Computed example of a mutant assay.
Amino acid sequence: MSAHDPTHPTDPGDPAAGRPDGSAPVDFAVDLTAHEAHRRAQVLEAIGPHWDPVEALHGEEAAYDLLYSGLDEEQQRVYDDLVAAGVLPPRGGGRAAA
């Protein structure tokens, strides 16, 4: 048996099948719960105590309204197609803001 031509066990159901050293696979698990809690704490610390998620959402909605305002005829057609395809959510009754 060489490294380039390993001898395989005859039983394909054997967990060591195809491993040159005949070892069985080992279960490996990592619990990232503590890391995730630490990451979330760091995010909240970086955001700061004055962050208001509702206000941030309203600002985001206002930005989208501005983004889709004043569209010319072709842009409005593309916007309407994207809304109809479900790519963009409908805004202002299905039309971009004027």
Rank of each mutant, 00 (worst) to 15 (best):
M1G: 15
M1F: 09
M1E: 15
A3D: 14
A3K: 14
H4L: 13
P6N: 07
P6M: 09
P9E: 09
D11M: 06
P12I: 05
P12K: 06
G13K: 10
D14I: 02
D14V: 03
D14H: 03
P15A: 06
A16D: 01
A16N: 02
A17F: 11
G18C: 08
D21E: 04
D21N: 07
G22P: 03
S23K: 12
S23G: 11
S23M: 08
A24F: 13
A24T: 14
A24Y: 09
P25M: 05
D27V: 11
D27Y: 06
D27A: 13
A29H: 10
A29Y: 14
V30E: 11
V30A: 14
D31A: 04
D31R: 01
D31G: 04
T33F: 06
T33V: 05
A34Q: 08
A34N: 12
H35G: 07
E36M: 10
E36I: 11
A37P: 01
H38D: 13
H38M: 08
R40L: 10
Q42K: 14
Q42M: 14
V43T: 13
V43P: 01
I47N: 14
G48E: 07
G48H: 04
P49R: 12
H50F: 12
W51N: 11
D52K: 06
D52W: 08
P53T: 07
V54Y: 09
A56D: 10
A56H: 07
H58V: 11
E60R: 09
E60Y: 12
E60I: 11
E61A: 15
E61G: 12
E61V: 10
A63C: 13
Y64F: 15
Y64P: 04
D65E: 15
L66K: 14
L67S: 09
G70E: 02
L71R: 01
L71G: 00
E73G: 03
E74L: 01
E74V: 01
E74T: 03
E74K: 01
Q75K: 11
Q76W: 01
Q76C: 03
Q76S: 06
Q76M: 04
R77K: 08
V78R: 01
V78A: 02
D80A: 06
D80E: 09
D81M: 08
L82E: 00
L82P: 00
V83C: 02
V83E: 01
V83F: 00
A85R: 02
G86L: 00
G86C: 02
G86F: 02
V87Y: 03
V87K: 02
P89M: 12
P89Y: 09
P90H: 07
P90K: 05
R91N: 02
G92N: 08
G92P: 00
G93T: 03
G93F: 01
G94Q: 00
G94R: 03
R95V: 05
R95Y: 05
A97I: 10
A97N: 08
A98C: 07
